[in-house]
Design a protein around this nucleic acid. Structure first.
Length: 426
RNA sequence: GUGAGUGUAGCUCAAGGGCAGAGCACUGGACUGUGGCUCCAGGGGUUGGGGGUUCGAAACCCCUCACUCACCCCA
């Protein structure tokens, strides 16, 4: 054990029966996006490092220190994707899907990679599902997207969730807010923590996010973005709030919600839950007008979000809405009582599979007791026993392990047996 | 990157300087081809790794690694 190779830190194997359940959780989340009219895109797991630096922002923690970056044999620099929006936009732009005259809705899912210290709800490889809306958008598109996540919260019975909402303004009003925030921060530098000093010059909005008590106290009287929004942004934000009110979706406006990715504009939001531990966000996103242009495409508005599937799992587990393990992943186990029965067993297993019945075979021969044990371990509903007696009569004994019902079937007619297996529940 | 807690059998955990244990799981038997129960027996461990203190270390000290949680950050 001491020298054996283990999975890298923060990387989790998902074993049976949880692997199938995890896929169900993912599929159910994807089904909600399909319900929202989103079409799926399959994206690569790595991209040019420059893509992430340009979209997420060079001064963000993700790009600064959390990416798995490598040089390929041609000397090009790539990074494992730390999030999906950059990839999806790159693909949409590259294949001319982005069109200023129409709205497109695209979704993606799969593993993301960030070199962080693992903790509850935080892994180095984790799974996200995300959706992006690109094109001529109205504030109602923000609401519509949020409503879709709200649907997940309801459908999956997410415990004690809160929708946190803010507006970050637009390229017109954010600089002036930024300026007044910086001058406030500089004036109160004495009561700010060290990292906040650094952020004041690098990424001042992030200071709002600081959880150091003394910083929070100082920030109480800091200028608020809401008071600096230009008329258009203020209108946009008001429209979003009106839409949410109209749909009866509760939210909490937080002028501290800034998000860790640089591309957000206007509406930003986070769905949090206090049932998750310190990593309380399970879905988050926002508007990113200007990002498509920044990435070399047409300048169209965009909004998107991503949800963490592992966190959804945790929350659904708490809520008791996690899909249960499949009761009978194997429908029937075929057991050869002696070595003479091996070929007949192989043949039966094959014929059952021809009929679409998941079947496992145990050919090592042995006692009847181990036949039952094997069947139970496989999770089989039926056990087929093939021994000397059966061979003589050209039959197979098939027992329903739940009801105890047992009947003899002609070995050559696997179809009838398959029909019976198909018809029985369990 | 920083801090705290925890590392003993496949799993959950005892033993807090004096022979490394229990429950569950596993294997075999009682019970020769009809299970789940019960009873009996058995296999399993360099106590995460290395060094030190000691007559004697799973335990105390140092180093190291891993895991967990938190900071940070975020899905």
């Amino acid at each position: 054990m001491g020298t054996s190779i283990r999975a890298p830190r923060g990387i989790k194997d998902v074993l049976p029966p949880d692997a199938a359940r995890f896929e169900s959780v993912l599929k159910e989340a994807e089904a909600v996006l399909a319900l929202g009219g989103f079409q799926k895109v399959l994206l690569p797991l790595f991209e040019s490092t420059a893509l992430f630096a340009r979209s997420i922002g060079g001064a963000t923690d993700i790009v600064e220190k959390e990416m798995y970056t490598f040089l390929d044999k041609g000397g090009d620099q790539f990074s494992l994707r730390p999030e999906g929006t950059a990839s999806l936009l790159r693909a949409a732009i590259e294949h001319r899907l982005v069109d200023p005259s129409r709205v497109i809705r695209l979704s993606y899912s799969g593993p993301m990679f960030r070199h962080e210290r693992p903790q509850a709800g935080r892994l180095r490889q984790f799974t996200q599902i995300g959706a992006e809306v690109l094109g001529p958008l109205a504030p109602s598109d923000d609401v519509d997207l949020i409503a879709l996540i709200h649907r997940m919260a309801i459908d999956f019975a997410i415990p004690s969730w809160t929708l946190v909402l803010n507006s970050l303004g637009c390229p017109l009003c954010r600089p002036s807010y930024r300026e007044s925030l910086v001058s406030y921060l500089v004036a109160h530098a004495g009561s700010l923590c060290e990292t906040c000093h650094r952020r004041t010059s690098q990424n001042p909005l992030r200071v709002l996010d600081c959880k150091v008590p003394s910083c929070q106290e100082t920030l109480e009287r800091a200028p608020r973005i809401a008071d600096h929004l230009c008329p258009r942004s203020r209108d946009h934000f008001q429209n979003v709030k009106n839409g949410l009110d109209g749909l009866g979706i509760p939210y909490l406006v937080s002028h501290r919600l800034v998000r860790g990715l640089d591309y957000y504009t206007e509406t930003t939001f986070e769905f949090v839950s206090d049932a998750l531990g310190a990593q309380s966000t399970w879905a988050a996103g926002g508007r990113y007008d200007g990002l498509t242009a920044e990435l070399g495409g047409p300048d169209v508005p965009g909004i998107g979000f991503a949800a963490g599937i592992e966190r959804l799992w945790l929350l659904r587990e708490k809520a008791g809405t996690l899909p249960g393990p499949e009761k009978h992943p194997v429908r029937i186990t075929v057991f050869a009582m002696d070595t003479n029965g091996q070929v007949a067993s192989l043949d039966l297993v094959r014929r059952l599979r021809d009929e679409g019945i998941p079947a496992s075979g145990h050919f090592t021969a042995g006692k009847i007791k181990s036949a039952f044990r094997q069947a139970e371990r496989d999770g089989a509903l039926f056990l087929a026993i093939l021994g000397e007696d059966e061979r003589q009569s050209g039959t197979v004994q098939v027992k329903n392990l739940e009801t105890g019902e047992q009947t003899s079937w002609p070995l050559k007619d696997a179809k009838k047996l398959a029909d019976m297996i198909r018809q029985s529940g369990g």
